[in-house]
């Protein structure tokens, strides 16, 4: 252990905090507040979803058959696994295991990338068969209101996908900084914060998946 310490960079506590713990607590509280606002942001979409599902139950059941639960399921596995690797990354940072930290971050990044690839395939199939919002809709459907389902589908998964992309950017940034040896048992705030964010992104998908893919 003592020989490894040299490869780490010492963290400088910002001037307006008393000590590193004070700084960490503040960052964590801020992150939780940010996550709460994220939940409310998506909350609006979920409210819209439930209102229209209550208004058009039969249409929702019919429309969801155009989504592939297999691909959605695969993506669910990807994200849940990535949440696990992210948690392991945080753990590795806490015990100053640089190589493991980088390994788990890279794995998380790859699972996230896998998620986006599957999402891309799904979107392309929808676009190809015309299951699109409103005026672009040319798929086959028994209900006039079916484009509304796809309006919701693309908005909800699109915004979630954007959050995955942002998460990938953040993880890439963590990988670069980990490589420089900036994270260790005395300072791992960014790893922990991105971890929290990543779990939320995962959690939102855990709700999106059954609500969109597994109706009926």
């Amino acid at each position: 252990m003592t020989t490894k310490v040299t490869q780490f960079v010492k963290h400088q506590v910002a001037h307006h905090f008393d000590n590193a713990e004070h700084e960490f607590d503040a960052a964590k509280l801020g992150m939780w507040a940010f996550l709460i606002q994220e939940i409310l942001f998506f909350g609006g979409l979920f409210v819209a979803y439930f209102i229209f599902r209550a208004m058009y139950p039969a249409m929702f059941v019919e429309a969801h058959h155009h989504l592939s639960w297999q691909l959605g399921g695969l993506n669910t596995i990807f994200l849940i696994t990535s949440s696990f690797t992210m948690a392991m990354a945080v753990r590795s940072a806490q015990v100053s295991q640089k190589n493991k930290l980088i390994l788990f971050l890279v794995l998380t990044f790859l699972f996230a990338g896998g998620f986006m690839c599957v999402k891309y395939v799904e979107y392309m199939t929808k676009i190809h068969h015309g299951y699109l919002p409103a005026k672009w809709f040319f798929g086959t459907g028994t209900f006039d209101t079916e484009p509304l389902f796809f309006g919701l589908y693309f908005t909800m998964t699109g915004l979630h996908g954007l959050h995955v992309l942002i998460g990938m950017g953040l993880i890439a940034w963590l990988i670069i900084r980990s490589n420089r040896g900036e994270f260790h048992k005395d300072y791992y705030t960014p790893v922990e914060m991105v971890g929290l964010y990543w779990h939320l992104v995962d959690l939102i998908w855990i709700f999106l998946f059954p609500l969109l893919y597994l109706i009926g």
Partner: peptide
């Protein structure tokens, strides 16, 4: 600010999507 503003954000975003993509909500 933390609890209410994100709801405005999603509302306005939906309005923008309504105008650009015709999502129909």
């Amino acid at each position: 600010q933390v609890l209410a503003t994100p709801v405005l954000a999603i509302t306005l975003l939906l309005l923008v999507l309504e105008r650009t993509m015709n999502i129909g909500i």
